[in-house]
Design a protein around this nucleic acid. Structure first.
Length: 418
DNA sequence: CACCGTTCAGTTGAACTAAGCAACGGAATTCGG
DNA sequence: GAATTCCGTTGCTTAGTTCAACTGAACGGTGGA
């Protein structure tokens, strides 16, 4: 943007007609009035929860389905409805919602309990207390009167994978039986993205958590179109979307296991891009740009929020990767499977990076764990392979497209101020 | 050629340590009378 | 003498380290055909 234009820029932005009518409707936090293609599941949840309004404990519910299949939305929708009733009738019901994926806020047993307790209006220190103490605090403050407490744990698969989430779930789901609670009753809704998640669950936890199970199948392309259409009607002004835009967004997302959140994000970003470019219509190419941008933003978000050590690890990975893919003619280390890096190489480079940046290098043991974490974040895909007599290691692939690598490299260099 | 023990380069689990925090309780200080 | 502040102790979580057992297929040797 040229400088001399800048003064009038905001003004023209203000007077220029926005192509959006109500942008909120395509933001992921938005809960629409009606939820399409999830009527069945919502009915199920509602009927399972129904006893709650008579202050009876409803069954625990275990909900699973891929990302963007409307799990969180459906649960929140029901929760909102329930809240309305609670307020109208002044029922003694508390609903607590926690997303277990939020780093630093709720990714260990202690932190979740602390978070839940804070939800009740109690102050809990970040650290220092015994976990059991927090449990007691939580149960005590719940158990003051007769009521039902409904705990919604979003993305519990994350929790069980990292920490001893089993303990937490066990304590919570069993609190009713084990004289912990005298007056109050407690019921849990667990939401998981991972189909296989239930398998890693201890049997005793599994049986009590999944008294009822609800499956959210992925949306198909037609349903996605339907959903987008509905939301777009509210979000955009008339005739702003050119022919096929919605279809394209839906198609992109459908290819990606029917992720509605992604479809909506594409649509929104495409709209923003069009608007920023000063156009009055959202064109097909905006969707392409949006796809590229959302991916880039996702990576940037991850990179900048991770700790330095993780950035350094990723950076060395990137360096090793770039070094091994570009010069194909070098055969100094004899067996080089053009694709994929091994832990050893990455660690060596990592040490070098640490020296340059002045970072205290961690042990390989820890780096090994960090690589696992990066894998979970979806930035890389690392699989353990055995190279026969040449040992056993992880083969690490970057999952980002090749042309994006220089940009990521730059981002990392900035983050590490190299 | 098929079979089999060896070997390597990490992986993975468990126990341990340091850093950081909160609560507790006793000692030291302050303060009003 | 009571109230307040200060400080050391204890007990906790968490990130990271240390130690060591474990892993699994290619290598290279063996024996049989």
């Amino acid at each position: 943007m040229e400088k001399n234009n800048l003064s009038g820029f905001f003004e023209s932005f203000l007077t220029k007609e926005s192509i959006f009518l109500n942008k909120k409707a395509i933001q992921s936090s938005f809960v629409p009035e009606t939820i399409r293609h999830r009527e069945e599941q919502i009915k199920q949840i509602t009927s399972i929860l129904a006893p709650i309004v008579r202050i009876e404990r409803p069954s625990n519910i275990f909900i699973y389905g891929k990302t963007g299949s409307g799990k969180t939305l459906a649960v929140r929708f029901v929760a909102e409805e329930l809240k309305k009733t609670i307020e109208n009738k002044e029922l003694p019901i508390i609903i607590l919602y926690i997303n277990c994926k939020l780093k630093k806020a709720a990714d260990t047993e202690y932190r979740i309990m602390a978070q839940l307790t804070r939800g009740l209006g109690k102050e809990v220190p970040m650290t220092g207390l015994p976990t059991q103490e927090v449990y007691n605090l939580f149960f005590d403050s719940i158990d003051t009167t007769e009521r039902v407490v409904l705990i919604i744990l979003d993305e519990i698969d994350q929790l069980v994978k990292r920490a001893s989430g089993n303990e937490l779930l066990y304590s919570i789901t069993r609190a009713n039986d084990q004289h912990q609670l005298k007056k109050a009753q407690l019921s849990v809704i667990g939401i998981s993205n991972d189909m296989m998640f239930a398998e890693n669950l201890e049997p005793r936890v599994k049986s009590s958590l999944s008294e009822e199970e609800i499956l959210f199948p992925p949306y198909n392309a037609l349903q996605l179109i339907d959903i987008l259409d509905e939301r777009a009607k509210v979000a955009f002004k008339k005739d702003v979307l050119s022919e096929g835009v919605i279809k394209k967004c839906a198609a992109h997302a459908a290819r990606d296991h029917g992720d509605a959140r992604r479809a909506l994000e594409l649509l929104r970003v495409a709209g923003e891009l069009a608007e920023r470019a000063g156009q009055t219509q959202v064109q097909l190419e905006h969707v392409d740009q949006a796809e590229e941008k959302t991916e880039r933003d996702r990576i940037a978000e991850i990179i900048t929020t991770q700790p330095k050590q993780m950035q350094a690890t990723l950076y060395s990975l990137l360096i090793v990767n770039l070094a091994s893919t570009i010069p194909n003619n070098t055969n100094n280390t004899s067996h080089k499977d053009d694709k994929g890096q091994f832990t050893g190489d990455v660690y060596k480079t990592y040490l070098e990076i640490c020296r340059r940046v002045g970072l205290r290098p961690l042990t390989q043991r820890r780096i090994s764990d960090i690589i696992t974490e990066l894998d979970m974040l979806g930035l890389i895909s690392a699989t353990v392979i055995s190279k026969g007599r040449y040992g056993k290691t992880r083969k690490i692939d970057l999952t980002v497209p090749h042309e994006a690598k220089p940009k990521i490299k730059k981002m990392l260099e900035q983050a590490l101020n190299l």
